[in-house]
Each structure stands twice: as C-alpha cells, then as structure tokens.
Simulated assay, not measured.
Amino acid sequence: MTKFLLSVHVIAAILVVGPIAVAASMFPRLVRQSAPGADLLHRICRGYAVVGVAVPVFGIATGASLGVLTDAWLLTSVLLTALAAGLLALSILPGQERLLATPHGAEEPRRAGAARLAMVTGVFNLLWAVVVVLMIVRPGSTTGA
C-alpha cells in the first residue's frame, strides 16, 4: 500500500503543482503586456489549486504508512507546503484576479501589481523546490543521501 500511496503522491505533485508553478510564473508577464491568455492561466491556477489538495493528503498518508510523521524533514515539508498553499490561496490567486480586473489603460498599477505578483510566485516556486529537495534527501533518514 505504501508504494501505491507514494506513487499517487508523486504523480499528483508532478501533474498538479507543476502546472500551477508554470502558469503562475507566466501570468505576470502576459498580464503586464496585456497579452491574451492571462485569464486562461488564472483559471488553470485556480482549478489545479482545488485538485492540489490531493498532494498533501497522499503525502501524509504515505508518511503515516512509512511511520515518519514525526520526522523533522517531513514536518518541515508540511510547514513549507502549508506556506506555499497559503501564498497561492491568499496572495497569488487574488493578485491574479485583481490584475485581470485592472483596466487596460492603467499601465502603472498593472506593471507594479505584476512585479509584486512575480515576486510572490517566485517565493511560491522556491518553497516547492525546497520541499522536493527535502523529499529526496530526507535529512536523518537511513535512506537519505
């Protein structure tokens, strides 16, 4: 069962978090240029965010199955995942909505908002990169590097 849970967790992380990271990263540039497609990227982020709940659910189930729920590397990963989810739900998605609602003639607010959103998205992506490294290295684990 552990192998199944781990497989679903990894597949969900790749197929859900990956598209959010890419779409969220592309959004500020497109909205800054008033290029078509920004609304599609926002819908991708919003839709995949809902499905993204599967990643930590299967991750925690895998951790429980392996008996590592109290390991520092896993607790750190859970905390960083929660921070990334919070950034997505409380900053990135609302920021995208605000920028989509900004009139096309208001270039300075659009440019400033896009720059701020790009920074927050970079932090979001960095958090996920750290989580991936923790999942691979697992400090203190007998199977870690």
Rank of each mutant, 00 (worst) to 15 (best):
I92N: 02
Q33F: 06
L83A: 09
V130C: 06
R138E: 07
S77K: 08
W73S: 08
M26Y: 12
V68L: 05
V17P: 02
L74T: 06
V8T: 10
Y48E: 04
L75K: 08
L134K: 09
T76Y: 11
T2M: 14
V57H: 13
P103M: 00
R116V: 13
V50C: 06
I92A: 03
A21P: 03
H42K: 07
L30H: 11
A13Q: 06
V55G: 08
S25Y: 11
I44C: 01
A112V: 13
N125K: 10
T2C: 15
V120T: 12
P28H: 01
L117T: 04
K3R: 15
G63P: 12
G113Q: 06
P139M: 10
M135N: 10
A21F: 04
T121K: 03
L100Q: 00
H104Q: 14
T121H: 10
V53C: 05
S91I: 13
V8M: 08
C45S: 09
A21E: 01
S65H: 14
T102D: 00
G37H: 00
V51H: 03
Q96C: 06
G144D: 09
V132Q: 09
V120N: 07
P94W: 01
G67K: 08
H9T: 08
A23G: 01
P28W: 02
L5S: 07
A129H: 09
I136P: 11
Y48K: 05
G140K: 09
H104G: 14
S7L: 14
G122S: 10
A101P: 02
V132K: 13
M1G: 15
R138N: 11
R46Q: 07
T142A: 15
R32D: 05
R29L: 09
E107L: 14
L134M: 03
A112E: 10
A118G: 09
G86I: 02
A54V: 13
A49H: 09
A21K: 05
A118Q: 06
V8I: 11
R110P: 05
K3F: 15
P36Y: 07
A24L: 04
A114N: 04
V132H: 13
F4P: 10
L93E: 02
G122W: 13
H42M: 07
V31M: 05
F27A: 00
G52L: 02
